[in-house]
Design a protein around this nucleic acid. Structure first.
Lengths: 143, 143
DNA sequence: TTTTAAATGCAACTTTGTTGCATTTATTGT
DNA sequence: ACAATAAATGCAACAAAGTTGCATTTAAAA
C-alpha cells in the first residue's frame, strides 16, 4: 500500500534529496493546501520547531529541484505551492495563473486552459504567469 | 512652450505634490525608459546623490498617488514604471501585462487589448496582472 | 552496524526597508 | 521680491528579512 508519506518520499528520492522529517512535513503542508498556495509566514508558523535558516534552505532546494514554485500575489507576501509533474530538476514549466480571492483571501493555482499567446502576436512567449484578484468560484456561488 | 519638465511639474502639482528636483529627476528617468520598467537598483544608481530613505518615500508617494506602478517580474527584482493617465490619487487601473525579453532583458508594459476574463468563467475578476517572459518584437525581428 | 555525505542548528553578518526628528526648501500670500 | 509655513529631505538609529560559515546530527548506502 502506497501511503501519502511514501509518495512524498518517492518525490524527494527521485530528485536525489533525502526524505527528512522537516522536508516531509513541509511538503505535506503544501499538499494539504492544494490548490491553494501558502504564504511564507504560514509555513514558518506551521514549522515553528524548525530553524529559520533550514526553512530558507529547504525552500531554495525545492525551487531548484522543481518541487515547488513561488507566487508573488500583488505586492505583498510570497506564496509557495507544489508544482505539477511537468517540473523537474532541469526546469519549471508553468503556464498557469494565480487567483487571489477578495472574499476568502486564498491564493489558488488555476490551470490555464486557453491559449494566451495570441495576445502578443509579434512576441515569442516562453513563460506565462498571471496574477488575478477577484472573487473565486466557491465564494461567488455561496454568497 | 510646454517642455517635458513642465509637464512633469504639472503631473505632480495636479496631485498636490511639490515639484522638487529629486522627484523630477526620478520621473524623467522613468519617462525616458517608457515603455520599459526600471529596477529599483537602477533607480538607486541613477539617483545616487539622493538618500536611500528619500527614494523609498518618493516611491511610496508616487505609488499612492497613482503616478507609478510596481511590477514583480518573476522571482527577482522589483520594477517600476509610469502609470497611464487612467490612474489617480483614488485608485490604480491596470489590466496590463509585463513582458520580460529573454534577449535584451528589458521589462516592458504592454497594453492588454484582448479580454482575458473568459479564462475563468465562474470567477469574478477585478484585477489582472500578467508576467510573461520570451523574446520581444524588436529582438524577434532583428535577429 | 559503520561510514559518509547531506541536512540541520546556531551565531554572526548583510541587505533591505522603516521611524523619529532636525534641517532645508518649494510654494503661497503679501 | 520677501517672509511664513507646511512639505520634503537627510541623518541616525532601528527592525525585518535573508545569507554564510561552521560544528553537529542524521538518512541512506555499504
Amino acid at each position: 500500500m502506497d501511503t501519502t508519506i511514501d509518495s512524498l518520499k518517492k518525490l524527494l528520492q527521485e530528485r536525489d534529496l533525502r526524505a527528512t522529517p522537516i522536508r516531509l512535513e513541509f511538503l505535506e503542508l503544501l499538499r494539504l493546501n492544494t490548490p491553494s498556495a501558502v504564504t511564507l509566514s504560514v509555513i514558518q508558523e506551521a514549522c515553528h520547531n524548525t530553524d529559520r535558516v533550514t526553512l530558507y534552505r529547504t525552500i531554495q532546494t525545492f525551487l531548484d529541484k522543481g518541487i515547488i514554485h513561488k507566487a508573488h500575489q500583488s505586492k505583498e507576501e510570497v506564496y509557495y505551492a507544489l508544482c505539477n509533474s511537468n517540473c523537474s530538476t532541469k526546469a519549471h514549466f508553468h503556464d498557469h495563473l494565480h487567483f487571489k480571492c477578495s472574499s476568502c483571501s486564498q491564493v489558488t493555482c488555476q490551470h490555464l486552459n486557453k491559449e494566451i499567446k495570441f495576445l502578443l502576436p509579434s512576441f515569442q512567449i516562453n513563460k506565462v504567469e498571471i496574477h488575478i484578484e477577484g472573487v473565486c468560484n466557491r465564494c461567488n456561488t455561496t454568497t
